[in-house]
């Protein structure tokens, strides 16, 4: 089995809600991320999916050290980040890079492309500027741009090209893990496949681990090896991609998949329409946070929070009814698979 690159253990991020002007006191907290655990292996793509406000972006920010976890820990190659020496910490920062959604916001408009891509090298590696320029040109070639693009400004490129520049920058320190936060959703349809294929190629070439955050399930299916589904700050289901899409077990996952639009007409399966809206993370429902919208909910569901249990190898589901529902799901799926 390949090496585990990163492990998140019961990560929590609670944002305090304060009242009062001068003597602010905390009155409650928004539980943006509320106990999330997962691992990412070398060369593997793990996707976090869920609707807006489910905590997927906050989780990514904690891994990128842009937010401090309220509780829980992050282990990198088996070592707890809180126990790293400053030198090791610097190495962690260099090993974990990111590509964001909006290529117009992720490149500093006042810097030339060469400086943008070279910045991580300038900051982290004591190299002569000649060597940095060499590497930048190499990186540009790798992401499908021309080496002499290095002295242009970002506004001279299209969205897809800018995203390539952002990827080149993320690659510059030869990282082990790249966080991809909606890397293609701001791009044109005909450009998305280019970028997704580029990311896949780079993953093969360098054995990169990806943490992919996306709301488009088809993109997730194409890009990832494993998927974790988040709802209200918690992971409700984790499985191999194929397994998750063919045998979703958590009622929320099933609703989410059934709501995603199919790419061909007349192929939409039975639609599971969820009643109501996502509750506020300020005051999540007790027990299983999905129970008010779940058609199978039992009295137990509103009292006890379900713990993730492994249903099949690598398929974890946080639902009291996972075992009972699985049987039912299997029945419907075998019915659908018949021609």
């Amino acid at each position: 089995m390949t090496e585990v690159l990163l492990e998140a253990q019961s990560l929590k991020k609670h944002f305090p809600v304060t009242a009062g002007f001068i003597l602010a006191r905390t009155v409650s907290s928004i539980k943006a991320v509320d106990g999330v655990s997962f691992i990412i292996r070398q060369g593997e793509t793990l996707s976090l999916v869920g609707e807006s406000g489910c905590g997927k972006t906050t989780t990514a920010k904690m891994i990128l050290l842009l937010e401090d976890p309220t509780m829980g820990s992050i282990l990198f190659r088996g070592k707890d980040l809180q126990r790293l020496t400053p030198a090791e910490m610097k190495e962690y920062r260099a090993s974990v890079q990111a590509v964001f959604q909006d290529p117009w916001s992720s490149l500093n408009p006042r810097l030339r492309v060469g400086s943008i891509i070279g910045e991580p090298l300038v900051v982290n590696r004591a190299l002569p500027s000649k060597a940095i320029q060499e590497q930048v040109r190499e990186l540009l070639l790798q992401v499908g741009l021309r080496p002499d693009h290095d002295d242009l400004y970002p506004h001279e490129f299209s969205g897809g090209q800018r995203q390539r520049i952002a990827i080149a920058r993320a690659l510059s320190l030869k990282p082990a893990l790249i966080v991809l936060d909606e890397p293609v959703s701001a791009l044109d349809v005909s450009i998305r496949a280019q970028i997704m294929n580029l990311l896949k190629d780079l993953q093969h070439q360098y054995g990169l681990g990806y943490l992919l955050i996306a709301h488009n399930l088809a993109t997730v299916r194409y890009m990832s090896h494993r998927v974790a589904v988040m709802y209200l700050g918690k992971i409700v289901e984790t499985a191999q991609t194929k397994q998750l899409f063919s045998h979703p077990q958590h009622p929320y996952t099933r609703a989410l998949i059934s709501a995603a639009l199919r790419s061909r007409p007349d192929t939409q399966d039975e639609e599971i329409v969820l009643p109501g809206e996502v509750p506020s993370p300020l005051d999540p429902p007790p027990g299983c946070s999905f129970h008010p919208r779940c058609s199978n909910a039992l009295p137990l569901c509103s009292k006890t929070t379900p713990v993730p249990r492994e249903q099949e190898r690598g398929h974890w589901v946080a639902c009291h009814l996972a075992e009972t529902l699985t049987v039912a799901t299997r029945a419907t799926i075998s019915a659908e698979e018949r021609p």
């Binding site: 990128l64 050290l65 842009l66 260099a94 974990v96 890079q97 964001f100 991580p120 900051v123």
Partner: peptide, 8 residues
């Protein structure tokens, strides 16, 4: 954010 991630 990306500059912070790069360690600036």
């Amino acid at each position: 954010a990306l500059a912070k991630i790069a360690g600036s």
